[in-house]
Each structure stands twice: as C-alpha cells, then as structure tokens.
Computed example of a mutant assay.
Amino acid sequence: MLSGLHHVAIICSDYEKSKHFYTEILGLKILAENYRAQRDSYKLDLQLPDGSQIELFSFHNAPQRPSYPEALGLRHLAFALKDIRAFTEHLATYGIEAEPIRTDEYTGKQYTFFSDPDGLPLELYQTRVLTKIQ
C-alpha cells in the first residue's frame, strides 16, 4: 500500500535560475547537490517541511513539454499552505505573478496558480478552510 508522495522530479533549462527559485523564493531546503560529470548534469535534492522532496535536474537541450493548452500527462504540482494571500504577496516581491485566488467549489478551500522559471504550472492550495469573522 502506498504511504505518501516521496518526490517529484523536474528538469530545468537554467539550473542556477531554478535553484534560486526553488530554494530562495519558495524556501525549499537543500538536502544534497551533485554534479554528474558523465552527464554534464546537476541533481539537486530539495525538501519541503512535510518531508516530501523535489529532485531538480539540469540536462542540456532537453525538449520542451507542452503545458498550455493543457496536454495529457502531469497537469501541475500543488503545494499545501495555510495562507495563500501572504505567499502570493511574497511571490510578487520577486516579480512572480499568481492568478487570482479562487475557491474550490467542492472543498471550500482557496487555491491559485503561478509558474516556475520554465513555465511549469505550480499551484498553491490552502490546507484549512477560512472562516468569516463576524
């Protein structure tokens, strides 16, 4: 039986730019960084607070993956958090624009989308339902 998500692997076009994005802007912790000479490629292991990981790879001349319009395959990567508005404001300080925050009609939770440096669609999804102050 599956017990959780261990990692998601991402191939980037500009390793230093993506490393900065995922570590400095999104705040993921570096677990390991390895240069693989035979492939002329980096592999960066990153960890989120819940223990799940992202493997960031650099490969020269990797083909583009269509995202828009939506294509078959992985649609997006979603990050859980409690305060979407605060995080979208944090992204904006780096010039990263998120879509307007929406509310999921089935769960009542807020979500929004933004993109990584290669245009990979990323989602922010709140982990608690906001209540109105009366």
Score class of each variant (00 low, 15 high):
Met1Pro: 01
Met1Lys: 09
Ser3Ala: 07
Gly4Thr: 02
His7Asp: 01
Ile10Gln: 03
Ile11Asn: 08
Ile11Lys: 12
Glu16Gly: 09
Ser18Phe: 10
His20Thr: 09
His20Gln: 12
Phe21Ala: 07
Glu24Asp: 13
Gly27Thr: 07
Leu28Arg: 08
Leu28His: 07
Lys29Val: 07
Lys29Glu: 14
Ile30Phe: 08
Ile30Gly: 02
Ala32Thr: 05
Asn34His: 12
Tyr35Ala: 03
Arg36Asp: 00
Gln38Ser: 10
Arg39Val: 06
Leu46Cys: 05
Leu46Ser: 08
Gln47Val: 13
Gln47Leu: 10
Gln47Arg: 14
Leu48His: 03
Leu48Lys: 01
Asp50Phe: 11
Asp50Ser: 14
Asp50Trp: 07
Gly51Ile: 07
Gly51Thr: 04
Ile54Glu: 01
Glu55Asn: 08
His60Gly: 06
His60Ala: 12
Ala62His: 15
Ala62Gly: 02
Gln64Leu: 14
Gln64Ala: 15
Arg65Ser: 06
Arg65Asp: 00
Ser67Gln: 10
Tyr68Val: 13
Pro69Cys: 06
Pro69Trp: 13
Glu70Val: 13
Glu70Ala: 15
Leu72Ser: 08
Gly73Trp: 05
Leu77Gly: 00
Phe79Val: 00
Phe79Asn: 03
Phe79Pro: 03
Ala80Lys: 14
Ala80Phe: 14
Lys82Trp: 04
Asp83Glu: 12
Asp83Leu: 10
Asp83His: 15
Asp83Thr: 08
Ile84Ala: 04
Arg85Cys: 00
His90Val: 06
Ala92Pro: 00
Thr93Gly: 02
Tyr94His: 14
Tyr94Arg: 05
Ile96Ser: 03
Glu97Ile: 14
Glu99Leu: 10
Ile101Glu: 00
Thr103His: 03
Asp104Asn: 15
Gly108Arg: 11
Gln110Thr: 11
Gln110Glu: 15
Tyr111Gly: 03
Tyr111His: 15
Thr112Trp: 15
Phe113Pro: 09
Phe114Gln: 05
Phe114Ile: 09
Ser115Met: 11
Ser115Tyr: 15
Pro117Tyr: 13
Leu120Pro: 00
Pro121Cys: 09
Pro121Phe: 12
Leu122Cys: 02
Glu123Val: 01
Gln126Lys: 04
Arg128Thr: 08
Leu130Gln: 06
Leu130Ser: 04
Thr131Gly: 03
Lys132Phe: 11
